[in-house]
């Protein structure tokens, strides 16, 4: 395999990891509440801003030994993730819960509006928020060779985080009590409520996790591309949603598969179709439309019968 091909492969894996994480969030929200949270992209970009801001504050504060440095960087990422998760819970409380029994048009619009508000707040009130931001380089300038392909430390961290996060989500949903509550709610909201499951708590948890996953994707974006801007969230969110639909909305596995499928299509079409890189998004949306026409339930999703 040529080096160029390997580079594209690496690119699509890095991108696919982000799409999948965002898509899992969509799938969890949809499962729990039957809503699509269109501001998922806002969580993604908000987390990048929080992490980048905190990191540059910390790195300007002085020099530290490598172990202390590593711990604090990790703590900052964790803090930024938790903050984003809390924003997620706040969004649920303020702009999704009021519409629980309203027509589905309402939460579509309210979450889109939240996305705009978050994005604009970042643009207007973050120092130089309307300019592209540089994500601080926190990982050592080292790496390893995989054959002829160079993989940097940051990229290894991304890979590792992806695997850990996927495993963590799987274990959480299948092995913990709270996780099983979330699964129960997604199967039958009413029944779960009647069984005495604390529905509100489970939903808060879902939003915390979903937003945190988007936050992790945001960090990855920052680490890998090193530059980000306030308006990148909307597109990331829509791609993540598309990925969850392609995979089958409601299925966590589907979200992962969909995310990587979209990333591969996009990266390789952009690379190998002449003039493709300028319209790379057309290819990923093309895949989405194809699925919606031919298989609206997605790769994994099953056709559910309508209740009459």
């Amino acid at each position: 395999m040529s080096l160029v091909f390997l580079l594209h492969l690496k690119n699509s894996i890095m991108l696919g990891a982000q799409y999948s994480l965002i898509a899992i969030g969509f799938t969890l929200f949809f499962g729990a509440l039957n809503v699509v949270v269109f501001c998922q992209g806002a969580f993604y970009i908000l987390a990048s801003f929080i992490a980048a801001g905190l990191l540059s504050l910390f790195m300007g504060a002085g020099s530290f030994g490598p172990v202390v440095f590593g711990c604090i960087v990790f703590a900052i990422f964790f803090l930024a993730m938790c903050l984003t998760g809390c924003v997620g819970m706040l969004v649920e409380r303020s702009t999704i819960r009021p519409f629980r029994s309203a027509p589905l048009v309402m939460p579509i619009l309210s979450t889109i509006a939240v996305g705009i508000v978050v994005e604009q707040l970042l643009k207007l009130f973050y120092p130089q928020g309307s300019n592209p931001q540089v994500f601080p380089e926190v990982f050592p300038d080292a790496g390893m060779m995989l054959g002829s392909l160079y993989v940097s430390a940051g990229e290894l961290v991304i890979l590792g985080t992806t695997i850990i996060t996927f495993t963590g989500i799987y274990l959480f949903l299948s092995k913990t009590r709270l996780g099983s509550h979330i699964v129960a709610i997604s199967q039958d909201f009413e029944a779960a409520h009647l069984m005495g499951i604390n529905v509100d708590r489970a939903i808060y948890t879902t939003f915390f996790i979903g937003a945190s996953l988007a936050a992790i994707a945001g960090f990855m974006n920052g680490i890998y591309y090193t530059v980000f801007r306030y308006d990148m969230g909307a597109m990331a969110g829509i791609k993540g949603f598309s990925a969850s639909v392609v995979g089958g909305l409601g299925s966590v596995y589907g979200a992962v598969i969909g995310g990587f499928l979209m990333a591969f299509t996009e990266t390789f079409a952009a690379a190998y179709i002449p003039g493709g890189s300028a319209i790379r998004d057309v290819f990923s949306f093309g895949i989405l439309l194809l699925f919606l026409i031919l298989r609206p339930s997605g790769i994994i999703g099953q056709n559910s019968l309508e209740k009459v």
């Binding site: 699509v36 048009v105 057309v282 949306f285 093309g286 919606l292």
Partner: peptide
């Protein structure tokens, strides 16, 4: 045609971006 609500809105968003990019 085969979609409703969210999926339908997603289709329109995708189409908006596609036509813009083209």
């Amino acid at each position: 045609l085969k979609t409703r609500e969210y999926h339908l809105s997603l289709v329109t968003i995708a189409c908006a971006y596609i036509s813009f990019l083209l």
